[in-house]
Amino acid sequence: MVTREGCAIVTGGSRGIGAATARALAADGWPVAIVYRADADAAQATCDAIAAAGGRAWPIQADVSDATAADAIFEAAEAELGPALVLVNNAGVRADGLAPQLSDDDWATVIDTNLTAAFRLTRRALKPMLRARFGRIVNVASIVGLQANPGQSNYAAAKAGLVGMTKTVAAEVARRNITVNAVAPGFIATDMTEGLLEAMAERIPVRRAGTPEEVAACIRFLVSDEASYVTGATLVVDGGLTA
């Protein structure tokens, strides 16, 4: 259980991997700020579930792709829950298409939300973490950042970018007891992968999609004190798909 005075911020926290991560971190004792863009009901439901389980959570509406969002998110979280010592960059969007037909807008939208926003939030998060001499940042990448997936060149670029950013920022701040890691989920049953899973299942060695909870468990570990010597790593959570 957490004994530190501070909170965790989870972006894309209203549903899927983000909601499962928020619940897992709350179960470990972290007060959790759940950042959501549009689905206020889902964010509130996640907060309510955490409260019912004896935890503490606070919803924050923000579009992480907005350049001013990082300061607003951290100020809101810190006012309500204390200094942010954990950041999970989970918010992500897809705008698929084969490269010859991928528009500038579809490229920019995915890079802005999935990569640039994660950098801005990371940069902002490091301020309180450097002061506290403690921090945990986990970036939710994807196996698509590690292995080809036709139709997702924008998504792949963003997720591969997250993996690279994770490594370098980890090296920059390691001596301050701040770890920066990534998880790379494979096919996980969420709203974002709905309709894709049946075709994929037979290619996955464990023969099924993963659950958001199975990814959240890995994030929970990377946030824990037990993971203090793990930094700059990308933990693949894909049922053996890329093995």
């Binding site: 301020k127 450097l130 002061r131 920059e172 701040v173």
Partner: peptide
């Protein structure tokens, strides 16, 4: 260099 970043903060 990280100390200097912190000093700047």
């Amino acid at each position: 260099s990280l100390d200097l970043v912190e000093l700047a903060q």
